[in-house]
Amino acid sequence: MTATDTPAPRIAESAPLVAGAGRTGDGRPLRGPIGKVALVVVMSVLTLAFIYPFVWLVSASFKPRGEVFDNRLIPKTFTLHNYVAVWHDAPMALWLTNTVYVTVLATITVTISSALVAWGFAYFRFRGRDLLFGLVLASMMIPGAVTMIPTYLIWHAVGFTGTLVPLWAQNLFGSAFYIFLLRQFFLGLPRDLFEAAKLDGANNWQMFRLIALPLTRPALVVVGLFEFQAAWTDLMRPLIYLRDSDTFTVPRGLKSMLDQFGFGGEWHWELVVTASVITTLPMIVVFFLGQRHFMQGIATTGTRG
């Protein structure tokens, strides 16, 4: 970019007013070398601050027990022993299986059920609709703590405490936030499309399944990704519902490893560190697979919420 300040291209470039279209919000790049260098330096320091804890963690997971805390970037003694040991000293494979099982079920069920409900609220006109949708929104405001105890007692009464069922089964009934999000997307679809389909003899189910769902695929992916992350990382519910170590999810297992090998335990931090890497890594992979959807989904949350 040249340092000369010619007004002509600026007017041309500031023309589009659509969100994200070029330089809005005074997004013009800094002019002049000093500003640019300062920006690069500040951004690099910040990037280091955000990324380095990951690097530290991964690096520490390849260090032997005595060197975990040496804060070296490159391990003095490189070892794969921790990754072998963590498999022996904890039922890591079982925890991973449990977590995958819960996460997949939670993600699929909540996406389908929330889409159904969202479509019901978006497309149809019926008596009491606005009141009911108001209840959907209101239910988002209720802190989890208020329903936590009776919910536990329900699962206790039907004999599912100690199993993985309470960690996902509520998702069969949709989730208020996802219903809200998907309804917004359904409302954005042109209504004429469905009037036309109706004239062609499509029934309600076909309109939902064959037209509405395919057109909102990106939104469904966003919901799926959000829930995948939520289900994978949850600690509260596994703490409440799981007793036996064989039923643990990875986050619950990681907490038990911290209790066993961390403070007040046997001081095997290298195992805790390695298990932390194993717990976190799938989320990083998921993020890079769905990065665009994650970013868009979050941006949407803020502007429509």
């Binding site: 910040l46 990037t47 911290l258 932390s276 990083i284």
Partner: peptide
């Protein structure tokens, strides 16, 4: 940079608790 700033948000809160103790 957006990716760099966002990435920590993907960390499971349990792992954040552990990182807190370590860092």
């Amino acid at each position: 940079f957006r990716t760099a700033f966002f990435l920590p948000k993907m960390t499971p809160p349990v792992a954040i608790g552990i990182l807190l103790l370590l860092m």
